[in-house]
Structure formats: C-alpha cells, structure tokens
C-alpha cells in the first residue's frame, strides 16, 4: 500500500490534471444550463414562455442548438485573414480553461479534514486567474481584425476601451480582499471567511468588484462590444456555425467562472458550520452544494440585470470606471 502511494506521489499533479479534465465537460454542461437559465428567466421577465418544445421545459433545447451548430457550414469571408480568424477561438477557450484550472469548484470534508476541489493549488492563484481572464481580449481582437468587418473592428476597440477601464478597479478590489487574508491563494481567501463573509466587511469593494466583473465579462449594461442595435453582433459578426458556438460558450463559461469568483471572494466560499462539516455524509455534499447555490444566485443576478436595464454608451462606461469607481476605491 505504501509502495503504491509512494509511487503515485510524484505523478500526483499529472493525475489531478487529467482527472480535472472532466471538469471541462462539467463546465460545458453548466454553460448550457446557464444559457437555458438565461432564456427561461428572460422569458419570465418578459411574460413569454421561453424554450418549451424540446424536452421537458425545453431543457434539451441547448442540445438541439449544439447539434444544429455542429452541422452548420463553417464560413469565412473571402477577404478575411485565415490565420487570425481561425485561431482566435484557441485564445478564448485557452483563457477559460486556464482560469478553470485554478478555481476551486467546491470542497469535501472527510473526517473533518478539508480537501478543496481544485485541479491545482497555487500560491498566487488570484493573480493567475486575473491574468488568464485577460487573455480573452486577444481572441476578440483577432476575430475582429481577422474578419475585416467594420462592425467587428468597432466592437473590438470598444472592448479594449472597456477592458482598459475596468482591469484596474478589478485588480484593486482583489488586492483589498487579499490584504484581509494575507494571501493570494484563492483557497485561503475562501477559507478565511468562515466567520464573516467579505461582503459584510467590504460592501463597497464587493459592489465595485461586481460591476467591474460585469464589465469584464461584457454583460448587458456593459455589452457595448456586441451591442446588437448598433453593431449587429459586434466583434462576433462574421462568426457562424460552431465557431460562433465556441465563442458563445466561452462567454458563458466566463460568466460562470466570474460568478464563482464572486462567491469565493466575497460570499464566503464553501464555508459551512462545523457540525455540518464533521458529519460524514453532509461533509461530502454540503460545502460544494452551498457554493453552487451561491454561484447560481450570483448568475441569476447577473442574468436578471441584463433584462432590466438599458445599455451604457461606451464613453459613459469608461467615464463610469475612471471617474466613479476609481475615486470610490481610493
């Protein structure tokens, strides 16, 4: 027994990585769920029905959509730049996959000992996640410049302006959270909120982080890069079929991971009262379940906001960041 475990230890990171790949499948399913949730919630807000034909409550709608996207012709405009156009999805997918590696999606308590369910644990995971999240912008600009479409170009430049505005508030709020814990490890930060959630200690910080995150993900009050009434679909105009599907999924997965970040950094992560953690059965399920509940709540807030507010103009967005959020932080 010991021999086997000794044999395994050097390969442990490899095993964790390969087992972690299953997370990718889970997160894709979750993204489908998020899309379904968005469609149903928006339908409720607008007194419509939403998807209701495919499967019970339209749950299989997304599967049907995926099949459709798979069998659609992959089109590329004749004067597009193939290198940029074809490979942009790698950056978008890369961004979210690499974020996914470091984000703990829950924890299990075995005999009262906590094991976070993260693929890998690193000391500077918060910084790492932020860095990876910023990679998406390369993908977006590759699409826009590669497709040689003016709407795309405008959308991508708007994206830049917005990113430039919101990375700094995002960074500063994360720092402020990290200071409270004294660590840049997201697992530590989450664990340290056992007593009091960070949102109560730093309501302002949480608000700014949430707004900046919304802007970073491009959800509605801040979706100038693909505002459809002005720019058709913004940077994504020329993408169709599965290529669009990948970009679309990347966006939704980004949203889910963003909700995870909010839940982990400000809403107390997976912390549960001690008696639950020590219970052999509940300890396995409850922390993760609790985290997932929080994530779904944040998701619903993000989605609901989209259908309840108009869209900012791009200069107003940037003004908001530099002239409102920034002084708030200082």
């Amino acid at each position: 027994m010991t021999i086997i475990s000794e044999f395994i230890v050097p390969f442990l990171p490899w095993i964790r990585g390969i087992v972690g790949l299953a997370l990718i499948g889970v997160i894709f399913l979750a993204a489908m769920g998020a899309v379904w949730l968005e469609r149903k919630l928006s339908a409720d807000i607008q007194s419509r029905m939403g998807p209701c034909r495919v499967g019970k409550y339209g749950l299989l709608q997304l599967v049907a959509d995926a099949i459709k996207l798979f069998t659609k012709e992959d089109m590329k405009p004749s004067n597009a730049d193939s290198l940029l156009f074809n490979n942009a999805t790698i950056f978008m997918m890369g961004s979210i996959f690499l974020m996914l590696v470091a984000i703990p999606v829950g924890a299990v308590f075995v005999n009262g000992v906590e094991y976070p369910l993260a693929v890998t644990e690193m000391d500077i995971s918060v910084l790492y996640i932020e860095a990876m999240s910023a990679i998406t912008i390369f993908g977006i600009f590759m699409v826009a410049y590669g497709s040689n479409n003016k709407y795309s170009l405008l959308g991508a430049f708007r994206n830049f302006a917005r990113m430039v505005g919101y990375e700094v508030p995002l960074g500063i709020t994360v720092v402020s959270v990290a200071v409270m814990t004294g660590s840049l490890n997201i697992v530590d930060i989450s664990r340290s909120q056992g007593m009091l959630w960070n949102i109560f200690l730093q309501p302002l910080g949480c608000f700014v982080f949430f707004v900046a995150l919304m802007a970073d993900m491009g959800r509605l009050p801040f979706d100038q890069n693909e505002s459809e009434e002005e720019l058709i679909a913004g940077w994504i105009t020329e993408y169709c079929g599965m290529r669009f599907g990948l970009a679309f999924f990347a966006e939704y997965i980004h949203m889910i991971l963003g909700s995870f970040l909010v839940a982990l950094l400000f809403l107390g992560g997976w912390n549960v009262p001690g008696f639950v953690a020590n219970n052999p059965v509940l300890g396995l399920i409850a922390p993760t379940g609790f985290l997932i509940v929080k994530v779904v709540f944040v998701l619903m807030v993000i989605i609901g906001l989209r259908w309840a507010v108009p869209r900012f103009r791009i200069d107003q967005v940037v003004d908001l960041s530099w002239k409102r959020l920034f002084p708030l932080l200082c």
Binding site: A43, I45, S47, G304, L305, W307, A308, V309
Partner: peptide, 22 residues
Amino acid sequence: MVLKNIKYALKKIPKPPVTRMY
C-alpha cells in the same frame, strides 16, 4: 438608479406568460 426597473422585472416573474403555444 435602476432599482425601479429591477423591481418591475421581478414583479413580472411570477405572472403567467401572455404568449401561447400556437
């Protein structure tokens, strides 16, 4: 701010849909 909009949207959620399965 936008709270009134959000309130209106939330008020609509429990209402039954006005569309039909054609």
